[in-house]
Design a protein around this nucleic acid. Structure first.
Lengths: 338, 338
DNA sequence: AGATATTTAGAAAACGTTTTCTAAGGAAGG
DNA sequence: CCTTCCTTAGAAAACGTTTTCTAAATATCT
């Protein structure tokens, strides 16, 4: 591959001059400029971005770390980030942690070594590991999306979870349900916690006890929803009348389980869920959901990050943006006569 | 951020020695090695990957260029590529061309400047532009996925399209349909072409003429399917009895249009489609589809690319892998009595 | 014990840029 | 016409690595 030196030789100037023609800041006479441009064209020269990055300490690349690329929520998120940053000449290194804290740590180390200019991530870890402190001491801006890690002073953009969970549960209760199950993620992502809290808030104030068999924990994936569904359906008389799915993939799995035994939603089982617009629109029946907005989260996060990158607000306190969510009623809940 | 120099100073050795400790190839005495490792730990040193890349002419980063990140097919594809290459220490720069040839060219130029080690892309352009020749002369390995560009000697991995299209159409004909519409992408992606060809093959050998109003072209998106659906449904007696959707997003849009007017599939309209497993499984009714396999395509493409990167088969002729597809019958087609 | 081989470490070049510093040549001013 | 200023261009340092070349110190062999 050709270098500045080749171009300089061809054009009969110094490499400094070629660099200046490309940079455009420094004055170069019209004639030499043309000679250089001609040489560049003839040689099919393409600047070496790696060398540039080394010299300028800027890679113009942002790291995006999501737990699961196969989740439409995160796919939409990534897309929104891309759309927002592309115009300013940034590009994305995308990786997924598969909900593993170890993998997350490894990937962050890679991000650090690749000297990415900033990071948008949905954290999996429960607490700030050593890698985070490296990021912070290295002053690489990080923005958390969807989830947060308590105790870390990091910018974050997420969606309101507890109150909307509460409202969603209340809706079920209002429709006459009391045998309500919840399928959630194990462990303690902030998101999972908030959703479960909201659920408990509602049940508590309605005076309904929460039965152990009705609380299922697993992963944010279809498998978890499918298994839980199978189990619920095999409980005979004790089968819940309604299920609260805390995640779109879990919902898909649950529906699969119901349909597989010839069941019907909502006739045999009422279902409510958290859902991104993409997934939600093509599930039948139309689901009653808390409408999530990954596009908003992504573009806001990108904007926060870009502000940190361009601006000089290094010692400013972290931004914490919590987007409001709303409930959209569908046809996935049956009214029960008490 | 700390450098080799800092570590060398702290450990009382030369930077060459530190580099050797990190590299692991060159023999270093146990005592100095320990001193160096201690210094690295104390200083929280993280190697500068940019400098490494400059020196070694390897970025360990692959470019992935898809037309649309919001399409579950490509999302699955990207994920499969990531899974395949991560183990070997490669990471992905992901970008989407939004089906724009101009944007595609710009992004390829960026890839070139960032000195990515290789590229996996679903090409949008119809012919090989100048950027491609830069890639080829620069010997950056490229693998096409899903689509190809005629006349370019480039590795490719895609799915069989024409014969499966023909079979899918034949199925409709066997079920008694003759008023069959097709919704396809405009222009000439190889994929769109093949699917249309297969459709025409079937219609021709069945002796059914293809009516102009039954051939709709647009984008590979929901909007296109939705609009086409609206139009079909407003044709009264001439409304087709069956529609062949060449793409999963188009299918979603079409269904939306049908449901919106209270219609039913397949009672009011039979629908068949190309579909990725993810989307297909959660559409109701269960669709009769050509099952696409983005995961296979992605991992195969990654493997081909890795082989080019590691091996020395530079002058070998391009690989052209065409994966077989199969038809999965669902409940989206109604049998018509003739 | 002397000669040779082996192990370990440092100095310096190289990767391809950007940018600072220096200087040549011409324009402007007295 | 001589001095001063401005414009344009080159030389060289710097960014942080890896690697080649060289050399010192130690081990091995006769």
């Amino acid at each position: 591959m050709k270098t500045l030196k080749d171009v300089a030789l061809k054009a009969g100037v110094s490499i400094a001059t070629v660099s200046r023609v490309l940079g455009g800041e420094y004055p170069v006479s019209a004639t030499t400029k043309q000679r250089v441009l001609d040489a560049i064209g003839v040689l099919d020269y393409h600047p070496n971005g790696v060398a540039r990055s080394l010299r300028s300490a800027k890679t113009h690349t942002l790291g995006v770390l999501v737990p699961d690329l196969a989740n439409p929520y995160f796919m939409q998120l990534v897309r929104a980030i891309e759309n927002t940053v592309n115009d300013l000449g940034y590009h994305l290194l995308v990786a997924s942690s598969n909900e593993s804290a170890d993998l997350e740590r490894d990937l962050l180390r890679i991000f650090l070594e690749k000297r990415l200019d900033g990071v948008v991530m949905a954290p999996v870890s429960l607490d700030g590991s050593d890698v985070f402190s490296s990021f912070i001491s290295g002053t690489v801006p990080v923005v958390f999306v969807d989830r947060i890690i308590g105790g870390l002073l990091v910018d974050s953009v997420r969606e309101e979870g507890r109150r909307s969970s509460q409202k969603l549960t209340n809706y079920l209760i209002d429709q006459g349900h009391s045998q309500i199950a919840i399928i959630n993620r194990h462990g303690a992502t902030s998101t999972a916690n908030e959703r479960e809290q909201g659920f408990r808030d509602a049940m508590l104030s309605a005076g309904i006890g929460i039965q152990k068999e009705y609380v299922v924990v697993g992963e944010y994936d279809q498998e978890t929803g499918y298994r839980a569904g199978k189990r619920f359906l095999s409980m005979g008389k004790k089968t819940p009348t309604a299920v609260f799915c805390t995640n779109n993939l879990i919902t898909l799995g649950l529906l699969q389980a119901v349909y597989e035994v010839g069941g019907h939603v909502p006739n045999d089982l009422s279902v409510v869920s958290f859902g991104d617009p993409f997934t939600a629109d093509f599930i039948s029946p139309k689901m009653t959901i808390v409408v999530q907005n990954p596009v908003q989260v992504g573009s806001q996060a990108a904007r926060v990050l870009l502000r940190r990158l361009e601006g000089t607000d290094t010692q400013e306190r972290p931004e914490e943006i919590i987007l409001p969510t709303s409930i959209r009623l569908g046809e996935s809940v049956q009214r029960i006569n008490i």
